[in-house]
Amino acid sequence: TEYKLVVVGAGGVGKSALTIQLIQNHFVDEYDPTIEDSYRKQVVIDGETCLLDILDTAGQEEYSAMRDQYMRTGEGFLCVFAINNTKSFEDIHQYREQIKRVKDSDDVPMVLVGNKCDLAARTVESRQAQDLARSYGIPYIETSAKTRQGVEDAFYTLVREIRQH
């Protein structure tokens, strides 16, 4: 089974770092803004072998026109913010609204991801993020692309959301 996953969120929150940590098991430290990259990885989730087709997208506003296209083809979405960047957390709402509009559905598989949880300088409390996820009816997972904490959990949870859909 193949799953088309799309990673969305503001610029600099760590979308590529999360994806590369999942696929290649290493942490990319330097920031190089993405336009669009796709990665494929075969994994076993709950005993089922599946192929993850992951689209890593641009957070930069100037590429926002490309969003409709990949939102149409994606089956599930990782909505990523950084726990030390309140603005990126506030941006999640717009991504969710755009996904709902493009998919013409209120019920699209999504996982809210709070990345950079290895950093002490948190400005978005776990509780705020949990409340937001609960209001959307989606899971919330904290990750660190640096330490790998929660990385597999985030992507695998999204696959489970798609399966249950």
Rank of each mutant, 00 (worst) to 15 (best):
T1Q: 07
T1A: 10
T1G: 10
E2K: 03
Y3I: 11
K4H: 14
K4D: 04
K4M: 05
L5D: 00
L5Q: 00
V6S: 03
V6W: 06
V7K: 03
V7P: 01
V7L: 12
V7H: 03
V8Q: 03
V8T: 03
G9F: 01
G9L: 00
A10N: 08
A10M: 06
A10I: 07
G11L: 15
G11P: 06
G12W: 09
G12S: 11
G12R: 10
V13Q: 13
G14R: 00
K15P: 00
S16I: 01
S16N: 00
A17N: 12
L18K: 02
L18F: 14
T19I: 09
T19R: 01
I20W: 08
L22E: 14
L22N: 15
L22D: 00
L22S: 13
I23E: 01
I23K: 11
I23Y: 09
Q24I: 14
Q24S: 15
H26P: 01
H26Q: 10
F27D: 00
F27E: 02
F27H: 04
F27W: 14
F27M: 04
V28W: 13
V28K: 00
D29V: 06
D29Q: 15
D29P: 11
E30I: 05
E30H: 03
E30G: 03
Y31A: 03
Y31L: 09
Y31K: 00
Y31I: 05
D32S: 03
D32L: 03
D32I: 05
D32G: 02
P33A: 05
P33F: 01
P33S: 02
P33L: 02
T34V: 00
I35T: 02
E36T: 00
D37N: 01
S38T: 12
S38A: 04
S38K: 03
S38E: 03
Y39V: 01
Y39K: 00
R40V: 08
R40K: 02
R40M: 13
R40I: 07
K41P: 12
K41S: 11
Q42P: 13
Q42A: 10
Q42L: 06
Q42V: 08
V43R: 13
V44I: 10
I45S: 10
I45P: 04
G47Q: 10
G47H: 06
G47V: 06
G47T: 09
G47P: 05
G47W: 04
E48Y: 12
E48P: 05
E48I: 05
T49I: 06
T49M: 09
C50T: 10
C50F: 09
L51W: 11
L51H: 09
L51V: 14
L51E: 15
L51Q: 12
L52D: 02
L52M: 11
L52A: 06
L52I: 11
L52R: 01
I54G: 00
I54T: 06
L55G: 07
L55H: 05
L55Q: 04
D56P: 01
D56N: 01
T57P: 02
T57N: 03
T57M: 08
T57A: 04
T57E: 01
A58N: 13
A58D: 04
G59M: 03
G59P: 08
G59W: 03
G59F: 02
Q60S: 14
Q60H: 15
Q60Y: 15
E61W: 12
Y63P: 14
Y63H: 10
Y63E: 08
Y63V: 13
S64I: 09
S64G: 15
A65K: 15
A65P: 14
A65V: 14
M66P: 13
M66N: 12
R67K: 14
R67M: 15
R67V: 15
R67N: 14
D68R: 06
D68K: 07
D68L: 06
D68S: 07
D68Q: 06
Q69A: 12
Q69T: 10
Q69C: 08
Y70N: 13
Y70V: 15
Y70S: 09
Y70Q: 08
R72P: 11
R72V: 08
R72W: 07
T73G: 13
T73P: 08
G74F: 08
G74M: 12
G74Q: 10
G74A: 15
E75F: 10
E75L: 07
E75V: 13
E75Y: 12
G76W: 00
G76M: 13
G76S: 03
G76C: 10
F77S: 01
L78K: 01
L78V: 12
C79S: 02
C79D: 02
V80L: 09
V80K: 00
V80G: 02
V80F: 14
V80D: 02
V80E: 02
F81W: 06
F81L: 11
F81E: 00
F81Y: 11
A82T: 13
I83N: 09
I83Y: 13
N84D: 14
N84C: 12
N85S: 09
T86C: 10
T86M: 12
K87N: 11
K87A: 12
K87I: 07
K87F: 09
K87D: 09
S88R: 03
S88E: 06
S88V: 05
F89Q: 11
F89L: 13
F89P: 03
D91C: 13
I92H: 02
I92W: 09
I92G: 03
H93L: 15
H93F: 12
H93N: 13
H93I: 14
Q94T: 12
Y95Q: 04
R96N: 03
R96A: 12
E97I: 04
Q98R: 14
Q98S: 12
I99W: 04
K100S: 05
K100N: 05
R101M: 06
V102P: 03
V102L: 14
V102W: 12
K103V: 09
D104K: 11
D104H: 12
S105A: 10
S105H: 12
S105K: 12
D106K: 06
V108N: 02
P109H: 10
P109K: 10
P109N: 06
P109W: 05
M110E: 01
L112V: 10
L112I: 12
L112D: 02
V113S: 02
V113K: 02
V113Q: 01
G114H: 02
N115R: 01
N115V: 12
K116L: 15
C117V: 09
C117P: 02
C117I: 06
D118N: 04
D118V: 03
D118Q: 03
D118F: 00
L119A: 15
A120W: 05
A120V: 08
A120E: 13
A121P: 13
R122C: 13
R122P: 12
T123H: 09
T123Q: 10
T123E: 13
T123C: 11
V124L: 10
V124E: 12
V124W: 13
V124M: 09
E125C: 07
E125H: 07
E125R: 06
S126T: 10
S126C: 09
R127N: 08
R127K: 14
R127M: 07
R127E: 08
Q128P: 05
Q128R: 11
Q128A: 13
Q128N: 07
Q128K: 10
Q128S: 10
A129D: 04
A129S: 04
Q130F: 07
Q130R: 09
D131A: 09
D131V: 05
A133C: 07
R134H: 10
R134V: 06
S135H: 10
Y136G: 04
Y136E: 09
Y136S: 06
G137C: 04
G137T: 04
G137M: 02
I138A: 05
P139I: 07
P139Y: 05
P139F: 05
Y140H: 03
Y140E: 01
Y140R: 01
Y140M: 05
I141S: 04
I141E: 05
I141Q: 04
I141C: 07
E142G: 04
T143E: 02
T143K: 00
T143F: 01
S144V: 12
S144G: 12
S144W: 03
A145G: 14
A145R: 01
K146V: 14
K146D: 15
K146L: 14
K146H: 15
K146R: 12
T147W: 08
R148Y: 14
R148T: 12
R148W: 15
Q149R: 09
Q149A: 08
Q149V: 07
Q149C: 07
G150E: 15
G150K: 07
E152T: 09
D153V: 06
D153K: 09
D153P: 04
A154Y: 01
A154L: 15
F155S: 01
Y156A: 15
Y156P: 04
T157H: 11
T157L: 11
T157F: 10
L158V: 06
L158T: 02
L158N: 00
L158C: 04
V159A: 06
V159P: 00
R160H: 07
E161L: 12
E161V: 09
E161I: 13
E161P: 03
E161H: 09
E161C: 10
I162S: 04
I162A: 05
R163F: 09
R163Q: 13
R163L: 11
R163A: 08
Q164K: 12
Q164S: 10
Q164R: 11
H165V: 11
